[in-house]
Design a protein around this nucleic acid. Sequence first.
DNA 1: AAAAGAATAGGAGAAATCTCACAGGACAAG
DNA 2: CTTGTCCTGTGAGATTTCTCCTATTCTTTT
Lengths: 209, 209
Amino acid sequence: MDRIEAWSRELFSFDVRPFLEERVFAPGEFILREGSFPQHLYFLTQGRAKIYTTHKNGKVSLLNFPAAPDLIGDMELLEVRRESLCVQALTRCHFWVVDSRRCLPQLREDPKFLWFLCNHIARRSARQSTVLTIQQAYPLKNQLAAFLLMASEGDCYRQRHTEAAEYLGVSYRHLLYVLAQFRKEGLIRREGPEYRILDRAGLEALAAG
Amino acid sequence: MDRIEAWSRELFSFDVRPFLEERVFAPGEFILREGSFPQHLYFLTQGRAKIYTTHKNGKVSLLNFPAAPDLIGDMELLEVRRESLCVQALTRCHFWVVDSRRCLPQLREDPKFLWFLCNHIARRSARQSTVLTIQQAYPLKNQLAAFLLMASEGDCYRQRHTEAAEYLGVSYRHLLYVLAQFRKEGLIRREGPEYRILDRAGLEALAAG
DNA sequence: AAAAGAATAGGAGAAATCTCACAGGACAAG
DNA sequence: CTTGTCCTGTGAGATTTCTCCTATTCTTTT
């Protein structure tokens, strides 16, 4: 297949195709399970997934919402994680899967791939630390304003509140509470199953902190 | 110098010494300033520093407490960060500084170095995501218990509360409040300028969540 | 169509956390 | 020795966020 060849030449110095396999996961299906120790690199080429972990007190923390194109299983390849996370498809997900156990020697010697990997992990790490510090420094009001702007199409916001709450790391109840506040303040309006942004400038002011 | 040669052979395939320089920073001195864009890799060989960022609302978030041996400036080398962070020496800090701008071509082609870098960044990223999820899932009580155990020597805890509060991402007032609770519950006792751990098992139970 | 399971919505009260204000002690600079 | 600055410690009240509970709607499965 042509696309695969072009892609593979862009990321690898060696011919990765012998170690490559295509896989598709249905919505809700598990790509990695908590506690498993995968020996593969998953290149997400289509679809969205979620990465989360469950704590001893039962709470669930959503770490990331990978969307194509993204890479899953890199942390496990590098063996930096004692407890692996749970990765679950949200929509139908297409992957190119590299059997990293079998070609680890080539990967470790491949500067093209390693440079890509460094950049990839570093970018994700930077995003995470931004999230971490913003969560420490601002209440939900500010984060939600930013999220509404980011997740809306035009003036129309229609995300699942359950997912949004997990993404923002806050209880479902509290998310609703702050949404209701926004409504009272005339920033948004409910229109059946979706929300409409009425005062974009107001939200932007909040989002800026 | 012998140590440098051994170290350099361990991390690099090429001879990095022409690009290398030793530097020492005094306590309180800035290694990187907010907004600067460094072109160097700083290998911390002795000492402790702190990495933080200041938000628009004036709050300060402490991202990390690098301690020797550690690496600073990698994210900037990879150009993944729009706003650079502030890095400040806590104790006297010794560095081996690599002029990464001048030897970037060699670095990009060096699988030994890139493999090290991947592992380093991945490890830090894993630590950060653990912190992120724990902060979302547990109140300060649990995190503080873990921190007391981690930061004490023997049964003796003597950290600056101002620093601890920033590290835990919580207000100074609230930190003191929870410390006072611990005292009431007989977990710790104040002894002049330091705190003594009375009930290690109790703290461990809290820390485990 | 009926039943089961999510997602939505909100009330009430409690817990966690923050801001502000104040006061005393430690320590360095003048 | 005095002054300024930083760390410590605490009170009071406000805000943010959580838990638990109860309905209603919407989807999916049977």
